[in-house]
Every structure is written in structure tokens, then in C-alpha cells.
Simulated assay, not measured.
Amino acid sequence: MKLRSVARALLFLGLAATATCAQAGNTFRFGYETSQTDSQHIAAKKFNEILKEKTQGEITLKLFPDSTLGNAQAMISGVRGGTIDMEMSGSNNFTGLAPVINLLDIPFLFRDTAHAHKVLDGKVGDELLKALEPLGLKGLAYWENGWRDVTNSKGPIKTPADLKGLKIRTNNSAMNIAAFKIFGANPIPMPFAEVYTALETRTIDAQEHPINVVWSAKFYEVQKYLTLTHHAYSPLILVMNKKKFDALTPELQQTLVSAAKEAGNYQRQLVAEDQQKILAGMQADGVEIITDPDREAFRNALGDQVRDMYLKDNPESARLLTAIDETH
């Protein structure tokens, strides 16, 4: 009897330990570069709330904003290696691993925001996320960075000629860098966390980000002019370590993906609602806003040069471009 009691006690302790480990394993570390005032952090908290509710606490998130876990490239490496569970950053940060994703950085690819969302939430978006899976990344959802615009400290930018000679911080997208070279600017990729200081010290003259990021990062404090070029739509990709995703039950996997998409839609709405308030806030702070640049001149300056550059390296993706053009 005593042996049976001991065996039962050991079994109970083993099951309890297993349950504790399983529960601890479902607290996922989630990193991103933007500050706690940005819509990305607000939506990340919403994502955590949705997961807690839908899984009854079985999945929770520990949030790391402000590049706490490193810049985008470092975090992506961390997710692939399993030291970070989830990461969210602009699609351009994945193009070195999956060149097909460069497609999203082709300037003037999307007609408007609704068009971009329809493409990303459809078959084309799914195919691009699947390209990350052999790399150890599970794409969960697309969130919103928004339309990229140009700020600078030199003068109003209304046509491509006004960019000539400007030292502008770009992301590391080959498509984006090529576009600004064609415009006559001097593109300088650098990590997001270094941009404010570089602008403040005039190491660079300009940068290009969606205005919600310009606002949350306070770039407007060290930039005099904002031009709504809308030269590219910039989505965020939310990824998870694939092995950890695959280790979850099918039910939890489905819940995780649906919660990521739900929080992404929430964040998209936040970005849309904040646009006019952000513009008014920057204007009140002394920023001159050029709302009507000659976008047709920017399009014409590029022509098909950047698109052709992409197709030269990714000829099999011509069908994806066709699918995007035909999406209504």
C-alpha cells in the first residue's frame, strides 16, 4: 500500500511539473522596434488580451517594444534560432531571406490602402508568408506600417528633382534604395534606432517612414518638412518560431493565427484613425506639410525600372505582379 501511495504521489508530481512546464512554454516573448506610444505596441497589447481570452490563459505574451531585443534583423535571427518567440517588423527586413518578398517594396505597387489589404489578406499574401516557412519562420499576419512619406530638413519636396543630393535614410530594401537613387537622392540604410540621432546631428538630411512612425519616433522634432509622397505601402509581418508554432495543438495554432489577424485589423484601424490627428500635431509643432506633391512625376521618373529590376531577379514572380494588378 505504501509503495502504491508513493507511486501515486510521484505520478501526481510528475504530471504537475509537466503542466507547469507546458504553461510556462506558452508565454511567448514578442519583440518589435517601435515605442510604447505607437499603434504597434497598443495592438500588441490587444493581441495579448485576445489570446488570453480565447485560450483561457494558455497562451500569453511578454511584450518587448523599443528595440529592447535588438533591431529587426537581430530579432528575426532570434526568432529563427528560438531565443525569441515572435517578432514584428517591416516586410523589407525579410527580403534578404526570401527575395520574393521584395515584391512588396516596389514603389506605387498598390492603388490604395483597400487594394493593399485585399492583396495581403488573399492568396498572394499567403504565398509570401509561406516563403518564410523553410527558414524557420511562421508568418501569422500582416499588420500596418502604412504609406511611406518623406521628411527632410532642407526644403519642400514637390517633385523628384527636389530630392537630388539629399542624404536620406531608407530601409534596407533593394527596391527602395534603387528608387531613391533614380530620384537623385543618396539613400543610406541604417537601423531604425539610430535614425533620430542621425537626423538631429545632420548626418542625414531626410528619412522616409509612414507618418505614424514619424510621430511616435518624434522625427518631426528634428525635421522641418513633410511631403506626403505615398511612394510605397509598407506592411508589417508578424512571425513566430516555426518549431514552437508546430508544437502547439491544431486548435491553439488556429487561435493564434486568428488572434494575430484580429489584432492586425484593430491596428490598421488605429493607424487610419490617427492620420489627421498626427498631421495636425506635426503642423502645430512647426512642420511644413506638402500634401499635394506631383506624385505622377515620381511615378514617371521610375517608370518600370524598379519593377523590371525585381523581375530580373525573380522572373517566376511575374504571375504575382499580374495577380496584384488584377485584384479589385
Rank of each mutant, 00 (worst) to 15 (best):
M175K: 02
M175E: 12
N176E: 15
K181H: 08
F183S: 01
G184M: 04
G184F: 06
N186L: 12
I188E: 13
P189I: 10
P189H: 10
P189W: 12
M190K: 10
P191Y: 07
A193H: 12
A193T: 04
E194T: 13
V195F: 05
V195S: 09
A198H: 11
A198N: 13
T201R: 14
T201H: 09
T201D: 08
R202I: 03
R202P: 01
I204F: 09
A206S: 14
I211F: 08
I211L: 13
I211G: 05
I211Y: 06
N212W: 00
N212T: 12
N212C: 03
V213Y: 06
W215K: 10
S216W: 04
S216I: 06
A217V: 00
A217S: 13
Y220S: 02
V222N: 04
V222G: 03
Q223D: 15
Q223W: 02
K224M: 01
L226H: 03
L226V: 07
T227K: 09
T227R: 07
H230G: 05
H230S: 06
H231D: 13
H231G: 05
Y233C: 05
S234Q: 14
S234A: 15
I237G: 07
L238N: 03
V239S: 09
K242N: 06
K243Y: 07
A247F: 03
L248A: 05
T249I: 04
Q253T: 02
L256H: 02
L256F: 09
V257W: 04
S258Q: 15
A263V: 06
N265F: 05
Y266H: 14
Q269F: 01
Q269S: 11
V271Q: 03
V271K: 03
A272G: 00
A272H: 00
A272P: 00
E273F: 06
E273D: 15
D274A: 15
D274G: 12
Q275S: 07
Q275G: 02
Q276A: 15
A280M: 01
G281N: 03
G281P: 02
Q283L: 02
A284R: 12
D285V: 00
G286K: 09
V287Q: 10
V287L: 12
I289G: 06
T291A: 15
D292G: 01
D292M: 09
D292I: 02
P293M: 13
D294P: 07
D294M: 08
E296H: 10
E296I: 12
A297E: 10
A297Q: 11
F298S: 04
R299G: 01
R299Q: 11
R299Y: 01
R299V: 08
A301T: 09
L302C: 10
G303K: 11
G303W: 11
D304K: 14
R307I: 11
D308K: 14
M309N: 03
M309G: 02
Y310M: 05
L311V: 11
L311M: 13
L311S: 11
K312H: 11
K312R: 14
K312L: 12
E316Y: 00
E316L: 11
S317Q: 13
A318V: 13
L321I: 11
A323R: 07
A323W: 01
